[in-house]
Design a binder for these strands. Structure first.
Lengths: 312, 312
DNA sequence: CTGTTAGCGCATTCAG
DNA sequence: CTGAATGCGCTAACAG
């Protein structure tokens, strides 16, 4: 009771002092494994993301860590690389009772596949790119409306007079929803849609996709990238050809990673406030971990905002 | 034996099949806490870094995760913010038996403070910015010679004809060693040293420090930043004043984060190959975890390289 | 080769 | 208010 930092009122001050004396003297530290075995609580939470090296995710994790740490939970970071096989593997892994809860960005795995975890009572928070309820499952979703955001970006570009707007995206992930929004907006405006998808969602992928776009005769006057990393790669491709941004080709990204304000010209993009998303996700998880909430999953929408800088 | 994936040779094929059948049927998954309690191995390693949002560290962690995961260890990520109090707190925390080993970047805590951990047999790998043996302790160090690198950068700048080279740095961390190298080189060249230190080692800090430098009459012709984030901030400050890089003011950074090749102009910097450092650190840790090595700590130097781009 | 058993270090119950 | 006793689920050592 004293050792685990619990209620001290039922211990005489004298005994308390004796215990504390002994603890200090022996350098005693409680063993977490034994505690976990006894209490069924590991005080650890898993954070599963596609790529820890994509600046978007560390910002998210920062937010998560901030609130969970203050509740004395630890955070385990896991990369899935956005690969379905790895996502499934870690879902399996979570059942080993290593963690008390999960916050994750899952690209391939769908709600029903979480069933075994949910049945076991594991709190789960998913971070999504579109409204997508966990259905009958006790999964809390939190999302930014990527479709609406992409629609707004595209409409913004149309408003600037662009008649040939192309989109570049990476395989998997939130890209598809953003492409949808782009297609809808471009169609409404009576313009042609043109989408180039690369295997990877990094600068390299953006460079390649943009290069493909710039090769042909019909060079777009604006490129909308599904994320900032790809946008930055596209800027490279454009500038490498001696074209200038935004006068020859405008560029818009998505995520508002820090680097975006430091490239030249500063990148116009969509902010998703990943720190806030992370904190919100952690709070939702805490609701469940603390038993304050139970039952059906919730869906929370978080805001986005078009950040106008100079690249478009 | 069968359940824990160990030696199967001493089990009849028949029994084996029956067990596997039952396992699948019941969806049995071993409980890690109980395993840990029994075996004294948590199969988890802590990775302690100053700031997970600084792109340098995710790259490092990527390397670490790659090798540890292949040995079926998990990695816990922890931020210290480079704050001495937090570093100490987590050192204490490590004694709770949550992890089997530690890989960390420690800015304030010195070798003797690891003593309680070392005594308990916890393998520790430190990532440093200068040769600094763990002394009598069983701590494996791995470092890049920041002093030599900074010296080389400064000498390079002198070679380019700069007579007024300033350095900007953040509080704490590897900065001090780099400042040393800068001072030595500048002194050797018979030039004055000028160092501005900001509280934070991010773009903001770099912006502020560079601004201070540009205010005065004696504007430097070259600024050497202790890390890339600060260098990028400095570039902003320079360009905001309508000055151009490198003709008015040259800029060199340190770390070679990915963003550095995408800023404009691309940043000249020092590569430390963080992925390789992470992998090496993980390998050193595995040596201890597997019992292949024991006894006194080792010191491993890793290479750096000046990457010439267009900012200087 | 197979089935049984004794702790690992705690939190929690119960008797004092 | 305090001390002692009971498993948590597993692994390793043992007896069959």
């Amino acid at each position: 009771m004293v050792l685990s930092g619990g209620d001290v009122s039922s211990v005489s001050p004298d005994t308390l002092a004796r215990i504390q004396q002994a603890v200090r003297h022996l350098g005693y530290v409680p063993n977490r494994a034994a505690q976990a075995l006894k209490t069924n609580r590991t005080m650890t939470v898993a954070c599963i993301v596609p790529d820890i090296a994509n600046p978007f995710y560390p910002s998210l994790m920062r937010g998560i860590q901030t609130v969970l740490e203050s509740e004395s939970y630890d955070v385990i970071a896991i990369n899935t690389d956005g690969a379905p096989a790895r996502e499934k593997r870690f879902l399996e892994w979570l059942r080993q009772g290593r963690v008390d809860g999960v916050i994750g960005v899952f690209w391939a795995v769908r709600a029903p596949e979480f069933a075994p975890l949910v049945e076991v009572g594991m709190p789960i928070v998913r971070i999504e790119s579109s409204r997508k309820s966990g259905g009958p499952f006790a999964i809390d979703d939190i999302y930014v409306d990527g479709r609406a955001a992409a629609h707004e970006v595209t409409t913004y570009l149309v408003g600037k007079g662009h008649r040939h707007i192309a989109m570049i995206a990476g395989q998997g992930g939130p890209e598809s929803v953003r492409v949808e929004g782009y297609r809808a907006a471009v169609t409404t405006a009576g313009l042609p849609a043109r989408v180039v998808v690369d295997d990877v969602f990094t600068e390299e992928g953006g460079f390649r996709a943009a290069s493909a776009l710039l090769e042909g005769d019909l060079r777009p006057t604006a490129i909308f990238a599904a994320n900032d990393l790809m946008a930055i790669g596209a800027m490279q491709a454009i500038q490498a050809r001696g074209l200038s941004i935004p006068s020859d080709v405008a560029v818009v990204g998505f995520d508002d990673i820090r680097a975006s304000s430091f490239v030249s010209p500063p990148l116009t993009t969509v902010a998703q406030y990943q720190g806030a998303i992370g904190m919100k996700a952690a709070e939702l998880l805490m609701e469940r971990l603390s038993g304050r909430k139970s039952g059906a999953g919730t869906v929370t929408e978080m805001p986005f905002q078009l950040i106008e800088r100079s690249s478009a």
